[in-house]
Amino acid sequence: MSEFDELQAVIRRHAAARQAEQRACEAFLNALYHALRTASGPGLPLNNVTLDFTLDPTVRLRPPPNGSFHAAWLRLGLCEVLVRVRRLDGAFQGEYGSEGVFRLEDTSEDALLTLARQLLRDVGVAYGAALVTESHLN
């Protein structure tokens, strides 16, 4: 068997695990989207939140190997934030924006709401910090 044939066999053998990981990460991103829609509190949905799955810009192989990040753009009104997530040791580990990171072992509604609110705060700080910096330059 040639090295090429071995590579094809390995890719085929791990296809089911890769697809399961992708479905789990996409389900997590979808749950985060729903948490963002309700992050303002009961009865106060954020109607201008949308979700767009995308290829992770850092993945250099297709199909992505097990353990790779899966990504989505979350549109939050006038801005968008890239959220990347992967499964690692039974938890969801991810990053968002320029510096936000998270690790969730519990994907309960409360845990996702806490993450959604933190994401909103961090994105707000990022834009607020840019405005403060500009005002100091004038």
Rank of each mutant, 00 (worst) to 15 (best):
P42M: 00
R13W: 10
T114M: 09
E105F: 14
S98F: 09
G94P: 01
A31W: 01
S135C: 01
R75W: 11
P64A: 13
S2L: 01
L61G: 02
F102Y: 15
R37L: 06
L61T: 11
L113G: 09
R23H: 13
A130D: 06
N48H: 12
N30T: 14
S98L: 14
P64S: 07
L131M: 04
A9M: 11
R13G: 09
V123L: 08
G94Y: 01
R37T: 04
R18N: 01
T133Y: 05
F69P: 02
A126N: 07
A72G: 00
E26Y: 07
P42Q: 04
L29W: 04
L78E: 14
I11H: 11
C79Q: 12
R18P: 04
N138V: 00
F92H: 15
E99M: 08
T38Q: 08
L112C: 08
E95H: 13
R23S: 15
F69I: 01
H14W: 05
Q22R: 15
S2K: 00
S135R: 03
S40R: 15
Q19M: 08
V83S: 05
V101R: 15
A71G: 06
R84P: 04
M1Y: 04
E6L: 10
L29D: 00
F4P: 00
V85E: 03
H70L: 06
V49S: 11
T133I: 00
P45K: 00
G77H: 10
A71V: 01
Q118M: 11
G124Q: 05
D122R: 10
E109H: 15
L61S: 10
L78M: 14
L113N: 06
E6Q: 13
P63S: 07
T107I: 14
L120M: 09
A27E: 13
V59H: 07
R87E: 15
G41L: 04
V85T: 13
R62K: 08
V85N: 05
N48M: 07
P57N: 13
E134F: 06
H70Y: 11
L78H: 15
E95C: 14
R103F: 09
D106S: 15
R37G: 06
P45Y: 00
A27C: 09
L74H: 01
A17P: 00
L51F: 10
Q19H: 09
F92C: 09
V59Y: 03
L32D: 01
L120N: 04
F4T: 05
H136D: 02
